[in-house]
Nucleic acid binder design. Structure first.
Lengths: 148, 148
DNA sequence: AACAACAGTTTACGAGTGTAGACTATGGTT
DNA sequence: AACCATAGTCTACACTCGTAAACTGTTGTT
């Protein structure tokens, strides 16, 4: 299990990555066609984004004739980790449940998705604590203020 | 149920908001003391952030003597919505389950949190579809590429 | 051989963000 | 009355990000 350094992919770059993840390997032409119409971006804009992604190591290039084939060097999965970690880091541990509940409410989920989640929760529940500890910095969480 | 315009709170500003949410109402002095030590920020930095938050309508001020008492005009809850919506918008609906599963694995959750989540999922499962539809733009999701 | 089409690179530029110094005004202290 | 501490405002500045034009190099076309 290699520990990848987290590459920060910006919102605009994310659009490019989605195309690459979807295709596995693509030419810039294909990326440009898709995003010109979805995002109303000009071709050079998309070229810039591709260039930045290559530069930061999110995309690999392999020459094919005189053009390049682009492939992802980071998976969607691991790129999403940045966001999942970020979201949990914003609130007190005690609100984690609520945050996830909000996601569950908002998300389109299939019966199968729901079943897997329940199974996962079931398993997690076996080792779960009665109360999760607040790990917030003093003064940044109401936990400290009320009983201390 | 008032529909609030989403205010964009940046990462640094978020630190300030956490202090305000924790306290309910605070003076700038208190905010500064907490964040000077947590973030190693200089007082003027924190003042700038407070100013920007007031400007963008995230904080309200009420004069108390010659200083101000700051209170939040947006709740933590609704501010978090920006992130929960964002995270789901990054992946195909078909991956929503996986995204939430990752969060569940990562998050510290109490037995009670888990029980509520299970209950919520149970309820959601009643009206859940067998399969969630991919709503990605053509070319940005592998759904389209494999069977079309 | 000359040129057009296109892939990739370089340069650009304004807005937002993190970070912080300088300035101003006002009330408490001597 | 003079002055200092402090709260708030103004100014600043580098860096990132979204957006895109201009440039360069290569290959297929005529």
């Amino acid at each position: 299990m290699v520990m990848n350094i987290q590459i920060k992919i910006t919102d605009a770059e994310w659009e490019v990555m989605r195309v690459v993840w979807a295709h596995g390997s693509v030419t810039s032409r294909e990326i440009i066609e898709i995003l010109e119409s979805k995002m109303q971006w000009k071709a050079p804009t998309i070229k810039t984004l591709i260039g930045r992604l290559v530069e930061k190591g999110a995309l690999a290039t392999s020459p094919e004739g005189r053009k390049f084939i682009y492939t992802a060097k980071v998976s969607e999965q691991e790129s999403m980790d940045v966001y999942t970690e970020d979201i949990l880091s914003r609130v007190c541990n005690k609100h984690n449940g609520k945050v996830i509940a909000d996601l569950v409410e908002e998300a389109a989920l299939s019966k199968k998705d729901i079943a897997s989640l329940m199974e996962l929760l079931q398993k997690k529940s076996e080792s779960a604590l009665e109360v999760v500890p607040c790990e917030c910095v003093m003064g940044q969480c109401e936990c400290h203020l009320h009983h201390s």
